[in-house]
């Protein structure tokens, strides 16, 4: 079947089959390999993308379910040359080793911080628990999220000041 997907603010037309998951289409048909695929069972979170702003394990979502929705992948967050705040926080805190889980963590962190801009350590560590980091960077992942929250709050504060001026 031929379907249209709205991904990272671009429209893609893909010839695919109903039994394909969003993760497969992203990786295999569209070459967006930043979305990693590990367990394929919704346990590890490597394949997390945002669908209408909420994080989704794309290995569990049929491509048909993604039609007509706003899909955001790691490719939309920031580039290697110009990182987003959350990505930079992961670099600064070195919240990863092999990096296979990292895009998934970052997608969850983006959505989490959008909803909860001032998380506690406990909230952050619970929120990041839908992803698996086998290298065991756990504390640094949580700290990266908390640091990103701090920086985003500062940025917001300074924007606020500017708008007041």
């Amino acid at each position: 079947m031929k379907i249209r997907l709205r991904i990272n603010a671009h429209t893609h037309e893909v010839e695919t089959r109903p039994n394909q998951t969003l993760a497969q289409v992203l990786r295999e048909d569209l070459g967006m390999t930043g979305t990693m695929m590990s367990c394929g069972e919704g346990e590890c979170g490597s394949c997390t993308v945002l669908v209408d702003g909420t994080p989704v394990t794309s290995c569990l979502m049929l491509v048909g379910q993604a039609m007509g929705r706003d899909i955001r992948t790691i490719e939309s967050v920031g580039t290697a040359a110009a990182l987003d705040v959350v990505q930079q926080a992961f670099v600064d805190e070195q919240g990863f080793q092999c990096g296979a889980c990292t895009p998934g963590f970052i997608m969850v962190a983006k959505a989490f911080l959008a909803e909860n801009p001032t998380p506690t350590e406990h909230e952050a560590s619970q929120a990041m628990s839908g992803n698996i980091c086998r290298c065991g960077a756990h504390p640094y992942i949580v700290r990266a999220v908390l640091n990103a929250a701090g920086i985003l709050a500062q940025q917001k504060g300074s924007e606020h000041e500017q708008s007041e001026l």
Binding site: T33, G34, T35, M36, T73, I74, E75, V77, G78, T79, A80, A81, L83, Q87, Q88, F90, V91, Q94, F96, C98, G99, T102, P103, I106
Partner: peptide, 8 residues
């Protein structure tokens, strides 16, 4: 690092 966090 930057490649890893950007999925590239």
């Amino acid at each position: 690092a930057n490649q890893k966090v950007s999925g590239t």
